[in-house]
């Protein structure tokens, strides 16, 4: 779960000579791997870009609960249901860690949620794909969380202290997600022919959307130079994607499933797998809001927010009443 295609707020990377004294001191700290903390001086563009990135990452955690929540009531066993519940609960926690770190940059959680609901902030494209059968839940944990881990492990070294600490905590919890997913899909792949067919179908459908999670190809990522200099992006999209493919192909082979892309082939010379690009037209289409589930996801998010308003209001009213009674008693 994470951010993709963040438009960096910047007018281009400045050379040291073009920087003000404050900017130079800031960049020096980053170059020396000293974390930037909330009350430190930071360029306005750094702050704005981070709000976008961490906010989108937080939204992804929360919206990411929807495709999985879809299967909680239909999990095949009580144990799988408890595991899935625990996983989805983790995602809510991850959302909270990330909203909290974004809040240190001077935006409130409510403001970010409002921006999401107005369509002015995004979440990862992957959650706009449906989870059609139980094997999809296995594939989501294994492939989607697997892809997220690769990105998030790199981001543990990001320059902004609160974001880095959130990533460290999330990574500790995330490997449970990937492993429970692989475990679930192993059961399917080694099960009846029908179960195996469903596992294959899930891998076929989710493979390219998972590759898209890393964002457009490096040639298309026009904004990454500044984000790299600020160390809020640590590795390039293509580098992370390649790492994911190298890690995942043997896992597909172990399951005895067909590779979802006929072009996947070990390249001895490069020491990596060759593979096909995802359909980038589809990617940009999904980002624009035209994926299979964009409308549903946003409708569910807004409903949850609006239908839950009376609970939030009630809790606040109760807290105020009790506080007033306490003051009166004193």
């Amino acid at each position: 779960m994470y951010a993709q295609m963040i438009k960096t707020v910047s007018s281009g990377v400045k050379s040291r000579d073009e920087m003000s004294d404050e900017e130079r001191a800031f960049q020096d700290k980053i170059d020396r791997d000293i974390k930037i903390e909330p009350r430190d001086w930071m360029p306005e563009d750094y702050r704005k870009t981070l709000i976008r990135q961490i906010g989108q990452h937080a939204h992804s955690e929360v919206v990411g609960q929807l495709p999985e929540g879809n299967w909680i009531t239909r999990a095949p066993t009580l144990e799988r249901k408890a595991i899935l519940l625990a996983k989805v609960q983790d995602e809510a926690g991850h959302g909270l860690y990330l909203y909290s770190s974004a809040e240190t940059l001077g935006i409130t959680r409510d403001e970010m949620i409002e921006l999401l609901h107005e369509g002015r902030m995004k979440y990862s494209s992957i959650f706009n794909y449906p989870t059609l059968n139980w094997a999809d839940i296995g594939a989501v944990g294994w492939l989607v969380d697997g892809a997220a881990i690769i990105n998030q492990v790199a981001l543990q070294r990001t320059s902004y202290g609160p974001y880095s600490r959130a990533m460290i905590r999330i990574c500790k919890e995330e490997s449970f997600h990937a492993r429970q997913g692989y475990h679930a899909i192993m059961k399917m792949a080694f099960g009846t022919p029908e179960q195996k067919r469903q596992a294959q179908d899930a891998v076929n459908r989710l493979w390219f959307p998972a590759l898209m999670m890393f964002g457009p190809s490096d040639a298309e990522s026009v904004h990454s130079e500044q984000s790299m200099a600020w160390k809020i992006k640590v590795k390039s999209n293509d580098e992370l994607r390649r790492q994911f493919v190298d890690q995942t192909v043997p896992q597909i082979e172990y399951l005895g499933l067909d590779l979802p892309d006929p072009e996947i082939k070990w390249n001895e010379e490069r020491g990596h797998y060759d593979f096909s690009d995802p359909d980038w037209k589809e990617f940009f289409d999904v980002i624009k809001g035209n994926g299979p589930c964009n409308v549903d996801r946003m409708k569910n998010r807004k409903e949850a927010w609006e239908d839950g308003a009376w609970v939030r209001d009630g809790l606040l009213a109760h807290a105020r009443k009790r506080a007033a009674a306490k003051v009166a008693a004193e």
């Binding site: 909290s100 959680r109 919890e173």
Partner: peptide, 23 residues
């Protein structure tokens, strides 16, 4: 261990338990 939102201290303890003691 982290931050959270809550309407009062009692709820803050409950939320902290849910969010920060899952492991």
């Amino acid at each position: 261990v982290g931050s959270l939102h809550a309407p009062d201290a009692e709820m803050a303890v409950k939320n902290a338990r849910d969010v920060y003691t899952r492991r």
